[in-house]
Amino acid sequence: MSTLHTVNKSPFATQALVSCLNHAKAGDAILMIEDGVYGGLSGTGLTEIIEEFGKNVSLYVLSPDLDARGLDAKRLIGGIEGVDYAGFVDLVAKHDRTQAWL
């Protein structure tokens, strides 16, 4: 049993991503969407925390949201995978429940 968590806020604006990371279980997936994609950037003040907490979970970003914001996938923290909306749907189907961190 595992959960897909979605985070749609910048981690520089709210605690949603950190709170999500604090509650995610090993084997869960976290998909950063909308302004949440800023959480996937490397070289920020939060990168280290996200890398540390993210060790046991799979991290994804919604690529169309990344593209819209002019962020190159090369700037993402290593191991974060980009998915499109079809990939989002696959993640929802693959995990037993979806929890949105609004």
């Binding site: 749609n8 969407i33 909308e34 302004d35 919604l62 169309p64 949201d65 499109d84 909306y85 079809a86 989002f88 749907v89 929802v92």
Partner: peptide, 14 residues
């Protein structure tokens, strides 16, 4: 907010 747009794209893909 982007929510209604993301939801629309998601439903279309599903």
């Amino acid at each position: 907010h982007e929510a209604a747009d993301t939801a629309y794209k998601f439903v279309t893909a599903a």
